[in-house]
Design a protein around this nucleic acid. Structure first.
Lengths: 133, 133
DNA sequence: CGGGATCCAATTTGATACTG
DNA sequence: CAGTATCAAATTGGATCCCG
């Protein structure tokens, strides 16, 4: 491979989230957004139907779930299987790509959950010293 | 250490992001929020000053950066070192905890960046089939 | 049941201006 | 330089109604 591709040396910077206009930024936002992350997390455990998902992701509205699901489906992270029965039944599950992403996301989530004691302690300290000043 | 702490067996579910009222949810939002993630990512590479950070995180406003930084500092992920010089100089860097979290976050970011070709392809497919319907 | 469309309220965000 | 304060605009979020 000659030097035709500038940024291929070590970091694969074809897409850079730090750049305002990069599409990776919007995808990252779908993934890490308020509901995107929880949705992926829920689906990581297995296939779910719309209302199951809604119950699992505590606090999400129909609209937001629907919207989130569309974005994730469009990005190829979630697969939607609609069955033409009556009443209708639609199953959602992760694509292989979605599974990869969700894995990293869950690692992050668990890391945060596991550090909450430290976080809470830090908050208490911050609030104290700030009030004492 | 005796069995005084109930949830230490395997999953450490003392904090559950899926629960609406759990503090871990707010911390996760600070971390994965629009600017939190990019800020942590930028600081992972090294100490930065306020305006350096602002330049690095393309598109962030003063206000949002300031707000983001406060939240992350309060959560104990970012350390703020202000020097009483003139002009003032303030250095930001990650705490050990922040480093742990940022590592997972970057794994996620790189995973997404590395999958963008697939994502873009999926989007094109989605938009097509949708327009054709 | 699974959602789309709509309307409205609440939040978030971003310029801009100002301070130490 | 490193922020805070303020205000208006953009976005998000939710409740509701409706349809297949």
């Amino acid at each position: 491979m000659t030097a035709t591709t500038p940024d291929q040396d070590q970091d694969n910077l074809a897409y850079d989230v730090f750049a305002k206009a990069c599409p990776s930024r919007t995808t990252l936002e779908h993934v890490t957004g308020r509901w995107g992350g929880l949705t992926l997390g829920a689906l990581f455990e297995g296939t779910l139907r719309f209302n199951e998902l809604r119950r699992r992701v505590d606090g999400v509205s129909e609209k937001m779930l629907s919207q989130t699901l569309h974005a994730l489906e469009r990005d190829g992270l979630v697969h939607r299987a609609a069955q033409p029965t009556n009443p209708p039944r639609v199953d959602y599950d992760l694509t292989p790509l979605g599974r990869q992403v969700a894995e990293r996301l869950l690692a992050l989530i668990h890391c945060v959950e596991g550090s909450m004691d430290d976080v809470l302690a830090a908050r208490a300290r911050y609030d104290e010293t700030r009030g004492a000043l």
